[in-house]
Design a binder for these strands. Structure first.
Length: 200
DNA sequence: ATGTCGATTTGCT
DNA sequence: GCAAATCGACATA
C-alpha cells in the first residue's frame, strides 16, 4: 500500500475540525536511525485555537510549550502529558493561528517488530498504538520531534487515497478535557467505526 | 469486566 | 501546590 506524501496545502486550508476528520485513513510515517514505522490514523481530535477552551492555545496563551501550535500548518506539536506521555499533534492553519489535530490512535502497518521493542511488549498484542501516549512511544516520537516539519524526511503523513464513507466515521466528544466547560461537549473526536485500534 | 491508584514533569496560581 | 489532551498495575467480582 504505497501512499503519496500529503499535499502541504492540506495543512493550510479548511477548518481544523474537517482536517481532523479527513486525517482518518491517512498514514503516519516515522523514519530515523531506529527504523521505519508506519500506521493508519484511526482516531483524532480537533483543537480549534484561541476560542476553544480545551486548547492549549485558548485565549491566545503562548508559552514555550505551546509555541509550535503557532507555527505554520504542517508542523509537529509534541508535548509531555501527565509528566510521562508524549502526545503528538498535527498543527494546521497559518502561522499565528494556533490550531491542531491530536492523533489518538493508529493501526500499525510497517515496523511492528520495532514498535514492540519500543513499547517493551515482546508478545503479540493489540495495545501497541491504541492510545495517544502509546502510539508516540511505538513510533519513536519524543519531544525531539516537537516543532519538526511534517514535510521533511523524519516524520510525515501519506494520503492513501482511501476515502471513508460518512457512515464509517464515528463522532463524539473529546476525551479528558472536563476542565473545558461546555466546549467539552463539542463533537470533535473522530474515529473509524468498528476499527479495533482505537483508544479506550 | 470494571474500578482505583500511582507515576512524574510542566505550567500555571 | 495542584491539575493535566494517559497508561498500566493491581484489586475486587
Amino acid at each position: 500500500m504505497q501512499g503519496r506524501v500529503l499535499d502541504p496545502a492540506f495543512y493550510l486550508e479548511g477548518s481544523v475540525v474537517d482536517q481532523a476528520r479527513q486525517l482518518l485513513g491517512m498514514v503516519l510515517v516515522t523514519a530515523f536511525h531506529g527504523g521505519r514505522t508506519s500506521a493508519v490514523i484511526t482516531e483524532t481530535e480537533a483543537y480549534a485555537g484561541v476560542a476553544d477552551r480545551a486548547s492549549h492555545a485558548h485565549g491566545g496563551r503562548r508559552t514555550r510549550r505551546t509555541e509550535p501550535m503557532y507555527a505554520e500548518g504542517g508542523t509537529a506539536y509534541v508535548y509531555l502529558c501527565y509528566g510521562m506521555h508524549h502526545l503528538f499533534n498535527v498543527v494546521t492553519n497559518r502561522r499565528d493561528t494556533p490550531e491542531a489535530v491530536l492523533v489518538r490512535a493508529l493501526e500499525p502497518i510497517e515496523g511492528v517488530g520495532v514498535m514492540r521493542v519500543r513499547r517493551n511488549l515482546p508478545n503479540g498484542t493489540r495495545h501497541l498504538t491504541s492510545g495517544p501516549g502509546k502510539l508516540t512511544k511505538a513510533l519513536g516520537i519524543s519531544r525531539s520531534f516537537n516543532g519538526k516539519s511534517l514535510l521533511d524526511d523524519e516524520i510525515w503523513i501519506e494520503n492513501s487515497g482511501m476515502k471513508l464513507a460518512k457512515n464509517s466515521i464515528e463522532v463524539g466528544p473529546r476525551i479528558g478535557i472536563d476542565y473545558a466547560g461546555e466546549d467539552a461537549l463539542l463533537p470533535w473526536r473522530f474515529s473509524i467505526r468498528g476499527n479495533r485500534w482505537v483508544s479506550k
